[in-house]
């Protein structure tokens, strides 16, 4: 199957930077109502590098309960954005989001999203795109709750927020 690349299975079995840690500036809890997948995500920002998008993501910690795609995606998220500026993290999110919603047209740019390219196959399965975006939408929500203006960089965040896709 094109979907379950080795990298995804690897991340889902041994998620990077997993666990909820202190301190944190914001904590969010997102669910996928279709299947009940859940992620709790905490964000700690370092403002010594600047305010807003110039702040650095000092720590992103999380607890994910869900399918291999959603857990692996949270793992890649943590690995890709920790230690980077908010600006860089939002660019990574935008690239990841573009690939996942491309219906398979966008193979993903490894320079921009790292291990995220393993999720290119997910884009061909519309029902699973939400799984892959669960952690990322929680992340952008946590940024917003930390006082970062994310409106320009993530126009479609709200589509994937906590209760945007009721089902069942």
């Amino acid at each position: 199957m094109d979907l379950y690349r080795e990298l995804i299975l690897e991340h889902s079995k041994r998620p990077h930077r997993v666990g909820l840690r202190e301190p944190f500036a914001a904590e969010v809890h997102h669910v996928n109502p279709t299947c009940g997948d859940e992620v709790t995500l905490r964000l700690d920002l370092d403002a010594s590098t600047g305010e807003g998008e110039h702040a650095t993501i000092r720590d992103l910690s999380y607890d994910a309960l869900g399918c291999s795609i959603s857990v692996a995606s949270a793992s890649v998220l943590a690995a890709e954005v920790t230690g980077h500026s908010v600006r860089e993290a939002l660019d990574t999110y935008a690239a990841m989001h573009a690939m996942l919603t491309s219906k398979g047209q966008d193979p993903g740019d490894e320079d921009a999203i790292g291990d995220g390219v393993a999720f290119a196959g997910v884009a061909k399965y519309p029902a699973r795109v939400k799984c892959a975006l669960l952690g990322w939408s929680a992340f952008t929500d946590a940024l917003a709750r930390s006082g970062i203006d994310i409106s320009e960089t993530s126009p479609s965040t709200s589509r994937f927020s906590t209760h945007a896709t009721p089902k069942g």
Binding site: M1, Y4, C35, G36, G66, S68, C131
Partner: peptide, 26 residues
Amino acid sequence: GVHAHDVGQVLDDQGVAVRVGHHCAW
């Protein structure tokens, strides 16, 4: 050890259509 969504995806890949999730009975 394997989430129902992942089980369902493997079945679907073989043409077997089942339902996965909480089936509206959370």
